Structure formats: C-alpha cells, structure tokens
Computed example of a mutant assay.
Amino acid sequence: MTTETLWRNAIPILAGTLLLAGCSDDKPTKAEKVAAASVPGAPHGAAADEVAKVAPASNVTETNDLIEFVYAYPKEAAQIPELAKALDDDRAVKREALVAAAQRDKDAAEKGGFPYRAHSHRQIWQRVTSTPRFLSLSAEIDAYAGGAHGNPAFDTLIWDRNRRKQMKALDLFKSGEAFDAAIRDSFCAGIKRAKAAKGITADEAPDSVFAKCPPASAQTVWLGSSDGRFLDRMTIAIGPYEVGPYAEGSYKINVPVTGALVKAVKDEFARDFLPVN
C-alpha cells in the first residue's frame, strides 16, 4: 500500500472526526487538528507528518513484453515525506527512461526483423543504519538493455534529519582527496584480500588497466553504525570493470572508521562519527 493509498483510505474516518468535532464545544484534540488539516485533498503539513509515521515500505513492480521494472525503498524512507517524494520522483524518471529506450529498441528490432529482448531496471534501496541524525541507505541496481549481459551498479543516500536534506556519503567529508588519503592503504589492502578470497591474484603489471588501486571516492560509499548512535562502519562498493574484468564481478570492501578518517570529516558532522580503535 502506498502513502497515497493510505491517506485516501483514512479520509472517511478523518471526515467523521471533523463532523463530531463540529458538534462539540470542547477544544479540538490533536487528532481533530490533523483531520482538519488533511480534508479535503492530500495531506500536508502536520497531517502529512502524521500519515508518514505509519507509511509502509514502497515496492513497485511492473512486468510486460516491453520492460521489467522494480523500484523499492524501506519504510524508514517512506516515513520521511520529503525523502519519499524524492525517491518517488527518481523512480518515475528511471521508469520513463527505461520505457523510452525499450520502445526505441523494440521498434528497431521489429524494423530489422530480429527478436527484441525486454529491457529491465531493478533498484532496491535498503536501510544501512538509522542514527538520531542520519538515515543511511544503500541501493543495488541491475539494468539490462538487450546486450550480452546486465549492468550492475550501486548507489548511496544519506538523509540528514537536522537539515531535512538528502546527501551523499562523501558530502560529510572535507573533500574527496582528504577522504582518499585517510583510507587509501586499508582500502587497497581490502581489495587484494577480496580478490584472494575469490582465488584471484591482484594484477600489478605496469601496463595493466587494473594494476592501480582506484580512488575510493570514485566508488559508492555506504556509512553504517554498530550502536545506532554514531557512524562507525563503512563499506565501499565497487562495480565491474573498476578493479577487474566484468567476469570478476563486483566487490564490497569494509574499511575501518579510524581517527584519521574522522579528521577528514567536515566539522559540522564530526560529532556524529566514532572512530574504532
């Protein structure tokens, strides 16, 4: 059930509350004020906040001969009206782009007399952590546009409750360069360990495109928490072709939140991090 469906289902009940309130000389209760703010039309202001508190996770799935589209996000995001709207808008943009590209390729396939393969976009947002200030989300994306294989990717999102603003994880740091310098050694060592776990020896040949450890700031950074209060965990997601050929797959590298890393955090966010010794 979407947020929109939720408030629409609630309107008859809220309207009844309004009628009862109109027959009473007592001061309106909080519930009556919420009802008055939400009828008629969509919720807004305090009413929107009340409805959002019970909003369920959002999961939209569409499958037909043209496309397969999946876009989901957790209830923690659905319960923040501004964030839910941003994600709904992103979902609409992604679907529109998918349909346009798919229809173009389908028309070309029919004209050329070759089979069309349905295009797809699957994007699942999940909660990494929720602290008093931040909601941290991660997304794994799998897109297919009719080629030899799909195109996996990652995304990240931080919601700052204090500023009611959507951010990227790197926005919390002084610069990408400062971030890279603070974790370069542990990040690069983590890649070598992850490759070894797959039975792959890191390619260090001077002329190899994968010989050099890439900057962590160019990858997808997920920030987490072990205690629900401070950001003290970090994972860096690396897509195919970044540190190896497509067949090697993707990597998720856990990097410790050290004192050096916290020093690279912007002053306004430093108190929200906790280095792990």
Rank of each mutant, 00 (worst) to 15 (best):
E110N: 10
A148T: 15
A55R: 00
H44W: 06
V262M: 09
A37S: 12
C23M: 09
A48L: 15
P74W: 06
G176H: 02
I253W: 02
R127Y: 04
R193G: 13
A194M: 12
V54I: 07
Q126N: 15
L18F: 04
L261M: 12
D65K: 15
V128H: 00
R95D: 07
P56R: 14
E62H: 12
F179D: 00
A15M: 04
E68R: 13
F154S: 14
V93E: 13
V221M: 07
I11M: 13
V209Y: 01
A216M: 09
N254E: 14
R193M: 12
E204Q: 05
I200S: 05
E268I: 00
N59G: 07
K252Q: 14
G224Q: 04
S225M: 06
A55M: 11
S175I: 10
D89M: 06
T220F: 00
F187R: 03
A92N: 13
I238N: 01
A31T: 11
S130D: 15
G224W: 04
A72V: 01
R193P: 07
A10W: 00
R117M: 03
V93A: 09
L135S: 06
V257F: 01
T129Y: 02
A102Q: 03
M234G: 02
T29F: 11
K85N: 11
G190N: 13
G244K: 03
T17W: 00
A202L: 09
C188K: 09
T201S: 07
A108R: 09
G147W: 10
F187N: 13
E82T: 14
W7V: 02
G239R: 15
N277P: 12
A143W: 01
T129K: 04
R271S: 13
A264G: 08
T29R: 03
K94E: 15
N64E: 11
P245H: 12
S24T: 11
G259W: 05
L87A: 06
A10Y: 04
L231E: 00
D267G: 06
N64Q: 10
E242V: 14
P43D: 07
I158T: 10
A52M: 05
P81W: 04
H119L: 09
D272F: 06
I191E: 05
G146W: 01
A102F: 03
K165L: 13
D49K: 13
D107Y: 00
V54E: 14
D107T: 13
D267M: 03
R163P: 07
A78L: 08
C213D: 04
A92L: 14
A109P: 06
E50W: 11
D90L: 08
A86P: 02
E4H: 11
P245L: 06
F210D: 11
S226I: 03
L14M: 13
K192T: 14
K27T: 15
E4A: 10
Y71C: 07
V221S: 03
A178I: 02
A169H: 01
G112R: 05
R271E: 11
L6G: 00
A218D: 14
T220E: 02
A92S: 14
G41L: 07
G190K: 05
P240S: 12
G45R: 07
L20H: 04
L98C: 05
L98W: 02
T129Q: 10
F273H: 07
